[in-house]
Design a protein around this nucleic acid. Structure first.
Lengths: 373, 373
DNA sequence: GCAAAAGTGTTTCCCCTACACCCATGG
DNA sequence: CCATGGGTGTAGGGGAAACACTTTTGC
């Protein structure tokens, strides 16, 4: 993704534009969703995979962008600008405290339009944003599943693809060390609600890692009956993609390192992007299958997607963290599925920091059962 | 220190300036050091603790700033700008890969000069920067101990105080999950060198936490003989400061939340800042004592400061991480102190990510020895 | 009754810490 | 020799995962 000088334009940027972009996340139906908009106009700013440049191309119906826009010069902090833009474009209201900065994105050429734009990205949280998007400006806004947005044939403008991945990675880190997960919950919540937030946010679909490698193995087995050479070829490419995306996961731990992009040649980047999107599409397909409403007797979506942690141990982990959550004495609530024992209701504690942190193991649990002692 | 409140400026900002600031870290004599410069001109931009605003005041000899400056409009990415500015102002050369973005700082009023400046902060690493600062522009640049820079009577301009703390916090996180610590080491290094990097970077002087509370306790004991009421009062204030700074530590995990400043009243800000600087001065004093050259027979600085991890276990931890470090077969090197067994020499491995992560326990090891089984 | 989810209890075992010990060097 | 730091071995305890089991609801 090197955005070197765009060949066509003779006009060099005369001034800086400072913008904000907002990754508004919510959880619906066991899925992580992000708010996207369709900008006005007949052109989209899309990364051309052949050339490696972001270019203005005719707008397709599947082009999306993150809500965002220019910061006002006077009397408006970055976070305030993010709140305002989010509301203007999606009619979603969030408090400034619910926004966390991801980082600054400022490569030359990340925006092909006149001038030079540096964008500061934020993440917003809410248990359930108002869905209707009644606002007139928000007519083109909607929530989409993250895996779908990242998969073909959808396209995200600018470097918003990267911003979303950075955002998820950042949120994960924060969820282990701060009570940020509670922003996804209502004021009163059950341990199941809380666990659910962690389960979705840490799902391997957003974290192509060791877990995903096993997924690749499954594909390999399924394909082993058909054209084996082509399948092997395909898997090889996929494996490489997994490794690459795993590296991306690392890169996500730091806000976008502009230079890193500059270092990889356009050609290489292009290829990686292509494999990545293949992987993304496989994940999306998996997701679509799993999230289909289960017929009775069939395993639930959560189970099919291996989405659940051990409830008992998670509860113990969470409760031992001082000031994280506190019981509302005597108050219980039914789980969302309707059935099951009513659960204890909790409130947010006073701690601003999880000590000890609530670490979610990233590695697949080792298959080493007991090697004959 | 009495500053006249900044007169209400009638000139509102007409344009955005985009700047970069660089936190250039190195380790010298067991101490973490940061490159600072003294800007030209007769005015410094200092946070006035009474009003809570950054104001231009007459320059004092102890005023410092981070190296940094404006990003060029054309053909210069943010990281490139950071490299350039760092070199221009301090004659330090770093590779773009050695820079990591911390975040964007863009509050209204963070720079009292005309226009509105949004600054992107980066961290730079090197095992040993060229000290001389021969460059003409770099005459006013030098490395200073981090604790000293943050302590009175030194002053840092703008919000650079916060940026340094953010930087350290970010570096810590990265050191646990990425091989970034190796950037502080030479190409060939020993496990002792590597451990040293972790020891310094995770020293409690930069992390006023549980560890620091014990430090406060010691002060309490030492002062118990003198005016006890005043001492208790003082300790109470200090404890509060520790808690506050501990909260800051959390806040540091996310890039500066612009709103946070806006939310806390000027008054509160002022008080917290004052206690913090007291604590900072105590830490600095401790540091000065400990880093004095030990007379023979006296404990070494490292030991006095309880700086050392368990070497054996650290080595095992590091070696088990796949692709982190790899031995240079048969090659050994003497430790820097001259004495002791020559150590195995290592090189950087291929991994971009530490899996499993090299977690440094933040909590004080529990005093629970063995409670009589 | 049965499925589903919340809790509680318990066992096992891994990993991490701490410590003891030996090795190799310079002075 | 001794002080110093590198490196290996090992016992023990804390804690997390895994699992069994009870409880309470809706259907």
């Amino acid at each position: 993704m090197e955005y070197t000088a765009k060949p066509a334009t003779n006009d060099r940027p005369t001034r800086f534009h400072v913008a904000v972009d907002v990754v508004a996340l919510t959880i619906k139906r066991n899925l992580l969703q992000v708010a996207v908009v369709q900008r006005e106009g007949s052109l989209s700013c899309i990364l051309d995979r052949k050339s490696g440049y972001v270019q203005e191309v005719p707008r397709e119906p599947f082009d999306y962008a993150l809500p965002g826009g220019h910061v006002k010069l006077n009397g408006e902090n970055l976070i305030q600008a993010a709140c305002r833009e989010l509301f203007e474009e999606t009619s979603i209201r969030v408090n400034p405290e619910d926004l966390v900065q991801i980082g600054a994105y400022g490569e030359v050429g990340r925006d092909p339009r006149p001038g030079r734009t540096v964008s500061i990205a934020f993440v917003a949280f809410s248990p359930d944003f108002a869905s209707p998007f009644a606002g007139s400006d928000a007519a083109n806004a909607k929530f989409m599943d993250v895996v779908e947005v990242l998969a073909d044939p959808n396209r995200l403008e600018f470097d918003h693809n990267q911003i979303i991945r950075d955002a998820i990675s950042r949120v994960r880190e924060l969820m282990e060390r701060t009570p940020i997960a509670l922003k996804f919950c209502d004021e009163e919540f059950t341990l199941g609600d809380l666990r659910h937030v962690y389960e979705v946010m840490f799902h391997h679909a957003y974290n192509p890692d060791a877990e995903t490698l096993r997924f690749a193995d499954r594909i390999r087995r399924e394909d082993s009956n058909s054209d084996s050479f082509a399948a092997e070829q395909q898997i090889h490419v996929l494996s490489k993609a997994f490794m690459e995306s795993s590296k991306n996961e690392l890169m996500m731990t730091m806000p976008m390192n502009d230079m890193r992009m500059g270092l990889s040649s356009g050609r290489k980047m292009t290829r990686d992007q292509d494999v990545y999107s293949k992987v993304q599409n496989l994940l999306a397909e998996e997701y679509r299958r799993a999230s289909r409403v289960s017929t009775p007797g069939e395993k639930s979506a959560r189970e099919k997607m291996k989405l659940s942690f051990d409830a008992a141990n998670f509860a113990r982990k969470a409760e031992v963290i001082e000031g994280f959550i506190e019981r509302v004495p005597g108050k219980t609530r039914h789980s969302s599925s309707g059935t099951g024992k009513p659960a204890q209701v909790y409130r947010r504690g006073k701690a601003e920091k999880l000590d000890p942190p609530l670490i979610i193991p990233r590695r697949a649990t080792k298959p080493t059962k007991r090697p004959a002692k």
